[in-house]
Simulated scan of single mutants.
Amino acid sequence: VKLVKGNFKNLKAILSGLKIETVSGIIFDLGVSFHQLKEKKRGFSFKEDSHLDMRMDLTQKFNADILINSYSEKDLAEIFEKYGEERFSKRIARLIVTERKKKAITTTKQLADLIIKTLPRTKKRHTWRIHPATRVFQAIRIEVNQELKALEKGLNQAIRVLEDKGRICVISYHSLEDRIVKNIFKEAEREGKEQKNYGLKIITKKPIRPSSEEVRDNPKARSAKLRVAEKIISVS
């Protein structure tokens, strides 16, 4: 077993460095490390006040603090809507830009409190199913780490390096990830049928979900979806 620290958007280069041309199987587990989320100084969570960071790779300079205090109102709103599916994205972006003119927004509590302020009066009561800042924090984390772009690059490279009958398995945890996986699998399957050289055979027509027993034993698995495909060379 050889452990390599890296981003799966660089999968082909990593394998090349190990002098590996093809592989028989690849598993992508897209879950965020629970240990990283719990580490206060990483700034992923609004449950404890800490510096807005959210970098997966601490050697990277760009972080959540820079994003929140430099992106335009339009760009913030687009990110919140696209990556967080946040219905109040424009309202939140507008307040962030207004408030940061008075004082830089540098902590998780500052940002979470601002988001709560944008809620309609009927939603400000503490009866939320999920915290109002959840979607915005997800969106910021995805943008800071370019998670979805890395996923697209990683999946396409993975398909290319699979050998005949090799399988790719992907576990996703939210709809944005799952949509990308589903679409890339379908596109590779379609291209294979058209080009007649290689393609994918989708094994899981619908994603496999955890059983009620698994969710009971591991609640964090409740949103997981597993999709599997097999590479077919010389498609007839």
Rank of each mutant, 00 (worst) to 15 (best):
K193D: 10
G192K: 08
A158W: 04
I202G: 07
L3R: 12
K124G: 03
S236W: 12
F44D: 00
L11E: 01
D29Q: 03
E21L: 13
D217A: 15
I92N: 09
T22C: 07
R91K: 15
Q110G: 01
H35Y: 14
L155D: 03
K225V: 04
G17C: 04
F8M: 06
E78C: 11
N69P: 04
E152V: 12
E99V: 00
R160W: 10
Q60I: 09
L119I: 02
A133K: 05
I115L: 04
E78R: 14
S72P: 06
K38F: 01
P207W: 07
A133C: 04
R167N: 11
A150L: 01
L15V: 05
T122K: 15
V161M: 02
K206E: 11
N63T: 00
F8H: 09
W128Q: 04
A150K: 01
E73D: 09
Q36V: 05
Y83S: 06
H35M: 13
S212T: 13
S172E: 11
S236F: 14
L52Q: 01
I140A: 05
A139F: 04
G84R: 07
V136S: 13
L67M: 12
E214K: 00
M54S: 07
I66N: 08
R129C: 00
T204H: 08
K12A: 12
K193Y: 13
S89A: 15
D75I: 10
A139P: 03
Q146H: 09
E21V: 10
D29C: 05
I14W: 04
F88I: 00
S223H: 04
L37T: 01
